[in-house]
């Protein structure tokens, strides 16, 4: 294709000229771009930079909100009251289940200290 070669030369020269032409952004363009960036950032920053929720809020949320909390508060008051002035039925129940005197061993017996398994010869 003899006819297209000169055109290709022209095109290649045009491409090369275009590639060689670099432009440094002027300061007003840079300033405009930075101003845009600032404006945009101010628009979405409150969302993405919101403070993490407080511990109180997270607990309330985990328990199920205010209705759950009011029930929890009522149960707590009742518990305190039962501790201060236990009704007879409660006293009888605990006595029946645990006995009047309760002793709790801190060391389980099954470890073998009693049987002398750890005493050499």
């Amino acid at each position: 294709m003899m006819m297209t070669n000169p055109n290709d030369d022209m095109l290649d020269d045009l491409f090369a000229t275009a590639r060689a032409g670099a432009r440094t952004p002027g300061d007003d363009l840079t300033a405009r771009v930075l101003a845009d960036a600032q404006t945009e950032q101010d628009n979405f920053a409150p969302l993405s930079r919101a403070k993490p929720p407080s511990l109180w809020f997270m607990m309330k949320d985990a328990l199920g909100g205010w209705p759950a909390l009011s029930g929890l508060a009522a149960a707590m008051v009742a518990g305190v009251w039962i501790g201060v002035a236990p009704p007879n039925a409660v006293q009888d129940l605990t006595a029946g289940l645990l006995g009047d005197e309760v002793s709790v061993g801190l060391m389980p017996l099954s470890y073998g200290f009693e049987t002398g398994a750890f005493i050499d010869g």
């Binding site: 670099a22 432009r23 952004p25 363009l29 771009v33 930075l34 960036a37 950032q41």
Partner: peptide
């Protein structure tokens, strides 16, 4: 960050 991104990317974008 915006200043850094602009310094890096704007010249090529404009070019």
């Amino acid at each position: 960050a915006a200043a850094h991104l602009t310094a890096r990317l704007l010249p090529r974008v404009l070019g």
